[in-house]
């Protein structure tokens, strides 16, 4: 088991009252799993993914990654895990505006290796898997552009490539197919499925029903609670 989440809560105060954005969640993920979490906007799935990736700290409960409880690790250690072992794809594609798309994609690698971010040419990218992912995602020809010159869909695909650059053990994707047309959405799901097939644990939060057919485990998130497929309305999809 790569990820073991138990009794997880994230509590916020809204208009003076407490509410649980994540409410007593139990979740497990294994290498090679493709988990799909479905939920409406505001159901708490983005909050859950932020807790799974260590970006956010839970109010209660534990997130155990490869046997290490995030709660017992320093911020440095959790950040290092996130850099090296977790590929996080946020819902909104955010980029450093003054670096090229390729430099942004290679940012986690530069950070891991302590290298300069600047890259002159795609030929500098010696990693065959990354070059192949860029081709698969259809953005290889755009990598020398600046982020502002790309469409929302192209940026989304670049953000996916960035999440894969350090060959993470877990990929956590928040609405990876938003802003994508049907063809590109399929490309993205196919790529994530291929990753899962090669042993990466993939966790996707999505509205997109097309994602269900890729999932080994399907969950529904509703008002902060995570329900397994057998208990959800979408389990049969």
């Amino acid at each position: 088991m790569i990820l073991n989440v138990s009794n997880l809560y994230k509590t916020y105060i809204r208009r003076g009252e407490e509410f649980n954005a994540v409410d007593n969640v139990e979740f497990f993920a294994w290498s090679g799993d493709f988990s799909v979490i479905y939920g409406e906007s505001g159901s708490g799935k983005s909050t859950l993914l932020s807790l799974l990736s260590g970006i956010n700290r839970p109010s209660k409960g534990s997130v155990i990654f490869n046997g290490a409880d995030f709660a017992n690790l320093s911020d440095d250690a959790v950040s290092a895990v996130r850099n090296e072992k977790i590929g996080y794809i946020p819902q909104e594609a955010v980029f450093l505006p003054h670096f090229t798309v390729l430099e942004n994609i290679l940012l986690p690698k530069a950070l891991r290796d302590g290298e300069k971010i600047e890259v002159r040419s795609i030929a500098d990218v010696t990693d065959v898997d990354i070059a192949s992912a860029l081709e698969t995602l259809g953005i290889a020809h755009l990598v020398h552009e600046m982020p502002a010159e790309l469409s929302g869909g192209e940026l989304k695909r670049a953000a996916i490539a960035r999440a894969l650059v350090n060959k993470p053990e877990v990929v956590i994707a928040d609405e990876p197919t938003s802003n994508l047309d049907e063809t590109n959405a399929k490309i993205v799901f196919d790529l994530l499925a291929e990753l899962a097939h090669s042993g990466t644990s993939v966790i996707v939060a999505t509205h997109d029903p097309r994602g269900f057919r890729y999932g080994d485990r399907i969950y529904t998130m509703h008002k902060g609670r995570l329900l397994p497929s057998a208990e959800s309305d979408f389990g049969g999809l």
């Binding site: 911020d75 950040s79 290092a80 996130r82 955010v94």
Partner: peptide
Amino acid sequence: RREYALLRIVGYARKR
């Protein structure tokens, strides 16, 4: 803020 958030996502520690 977006850039700092991005850096956190890709593994920047708070100290960094």
